[in-house]
Design a protein around this nucleic acid. Structure first.
Length: 492
RNA sequence: GCCCCCAUCGUCUAGCGGCCCAGGACGGAGCCCUCUCAAGGCUCAAACAGGGGUUCGAGUCCCCUUGGGGGCACCA
């Protein structure tokens, strides 16, 4: 396959969400797979909806995911500028070119007239409400004169009124649309900036984009776009319309409401939130890759493995419901795939954020103990914070073993204390045999004895493996914590 | 209302006319392992939306119905 040039072209009007991330992923995979380039282009032609900081969030999110573009507003590139507001002359040139070729025309209708016309049509219940074509019939010379005179106008595409347009989508095949259903869309707005329809087609051509991956919300105007490209006489890219993401229930698309719900549930559909929630790029990427991409088997993949296996032929056209449980699964899976050094470095900030001082030497010993227990990185606190605290605060009730009372539990704790105190150090090898022997002779269960020790030493009922943990906590602290537990039990 | 797209287990999907009494993954249930929680291993339940065609043969091709989604802006 020839090197593909792909592009992701978001508008800086909101947050960078899962859907954008998936499009970017597939763009990136196709580019890497074929030895081509992945481009980021900012479609900021709607100054009314511009959101400050949105572009930064897009770039930050892509970067975090590891999908850094080869060409972009910040990285530059040979086909820039990559921000559409910086390309307005280009669009004006091409819009005029289309007028000259007879494929477009200036329209002088006011927004008010347009609105009135629309309402009239709605009242008449016409088949398809669209521009009534008033300016379409103006003599070109007359129109040119009015434009030169400075009359306010837009440029509209002169859509063929008869026949059909056959547009080819790589996933859906030929899409046949009757031309009468397609409006004379505005290409150039009265403020001199282009609409998406013109800008995207011009840029994709100018930037030599070979494959256009975009959301299925573009399907209705797909035939329009194809007509524009053909009017210019340009070669068409391969068109791929990806489906939208549905909310977890599968009933309805992702909405503002749903985004808020996800956050309430401890999840998010915004990539920029993922890091704080403890997700790692590997997990997120693997998760979104599987929505809309039919990977036959072995669905645990790193980015490099995805590149190796990617093919636009195995993309799927049907809408996919977002499943956060699957995100958790893949996140945990990829956490387990990390090396001890890597994982340690990634969880360290969470301890720091909790105000805990963490020595690398200790952390490196702790990490292997909690690795397979982490679903998200921030889970490290629940499992391992006690390693880095001076004292722990066990719940007295939890110090009492199942089937025993406080007094009996205190007795067990005292015996355990004696056993551990007698050891030169609390290495796993030293502690386990005598404690097991005690379990034997006492007639208690390992669960009861180790349970008391666990809560006393770690302050919690659930912890990493006990003996390995004791070794890391150290004899001095373990005995101190045990002593405290004994006192708590005696006071009950 | 009109136009367009989609349709296999609850969810993501494999299947591109016979290899499918439909395979994998998440989730669920059970068992094993076990000092807790995980991880891991094994097993089980779970789907071709409905109806017509085409064909010797249909989950796979065609049509209709139904359901879902998207779109009807000087927004993208």
């Amino acid at each position: 396959m020839k090197p593909a040039r792909t592009r992701m072209a978001p508008s800086p009007t909101g947050r960078f969400h899962l859907g954008s991330a998936r499009t970017a992923l597939f763009d990136y995979l196709l580019a890497r797979k074929t030895g081509g380039q992945f481009i980021l282009r900012i479609e900021d032609t709607d100054q009314k909806r511009f959101v400050p900081g949105a572009e930064e969030e897009i770039i930050r999110s892509l970067d975090w995911l590891g999908l850094t573009p080869d060409e972009s507003p910040v990285h530059g590139g040979p086909y820039g500028p990559y921000r559409q507001t910086e390309r307005r002359e280009i669009y004006q040139y091409y819009a005029n070119l289309l007028v000259e070729k007879g494929h477009a025309y200036p329209c002088f209708c006011s927004p008010e007239r347009l609105e009135k016309s629309r309402q009239e049509q709605q009242a008449r219940k016409v088949e398809r409400v669209k521009y009534d074509g008033l300016c379409r019939g103006i003599d070109p010379d007359e129109a040119a004169r009015r434009v030169r005179a400075g009359e306010k106008h837009v440029i509209r595409f002169k859509m063929p009124q008869d026949g059909v347009t056959i547009a080819h989508d790589h996933l859906r095949g030929d899409i046949v649309t009757e031309n009468k259903y397609i409006d004379d869309y505005v290409l150039l707005k009265s403020d001199g900036l282009p609409t998406y329809h013109l800008a995207a087609m011009v840029d994709d051509h100018e930037m030599k984009i070979t494959h256009v991956l975009r959301g299925s919300e573009w399907l209705p105007t797909f035939p329009l776009h194809v007509n524009i490209v053909r009017a210019f006489g340009w070669e068409e890219p391969v068109w791929i319309h990806l489906s939208v993401f549905l909310k977890p229930s599968g009933k309805g698309k992702m909405s503002k409401r749903e985004a808020a719900q996800a956050i309430k549930d401890g999840y998010s559909i915004f990539v920029d939130d993922m890091k704080d929630l403890g997700y790692i790029p590997e997990g997120v990427l693997n998760w979104i890759a599987l929505m809309g991409w039919g990977v036959p088997e072995d669905d645990v993949m790193t980015l490099d493995q995805m590149i190796e296996r990617f093919s636009i032929d195995s993309l799927t056209p049907s809408p996919a419901a977002v499943n956060f449980q699957k995100l958790d699964h893949f996140n945990g899976t990829h956490i387990r795939l990390l090396t001890t050094e890597d994982l340690s470095a990634r969880i360290k900030p969470y301890f720091a954020a909790a105000g805990l001082e963490v020595r690398d030497e200790t952390l490196l010993k702790v990490t292997p103990l909690i690795r397979e227990r982490l679903v998200t990185l921030d889970d490290c606190l629940a499992f391992a914070a006690f390693f880095f605290k001076e004292d722990v605060e066990p719940n007295p009730e939890e110090l009492i073993a199942k089937g025993l009372d406080a007094k009996q539990s205190a007795e067990v704790a005292r015996r355990v204390y004696q056993i551990l105190e007698a050891q030169p150090d609390l290495s796993h090898e030293r502690c386990e045999p005598p404690l097991r022997a005690y379990v034997e002779e006492s007639g208690l269960s390992a669960n009861q004895v180790f349970g008391i020790l666990r809560v006393a030493a770690t302050g919690q009922k659930v912890s990493p493996p006990l003996f390995e943990s004791l070794e890391i906590i150290g004899k001095e602290k373990v005995l101190k914590r045990l002593q405290r537990a004994i006192e708590m039990l005696e006071r009950m």
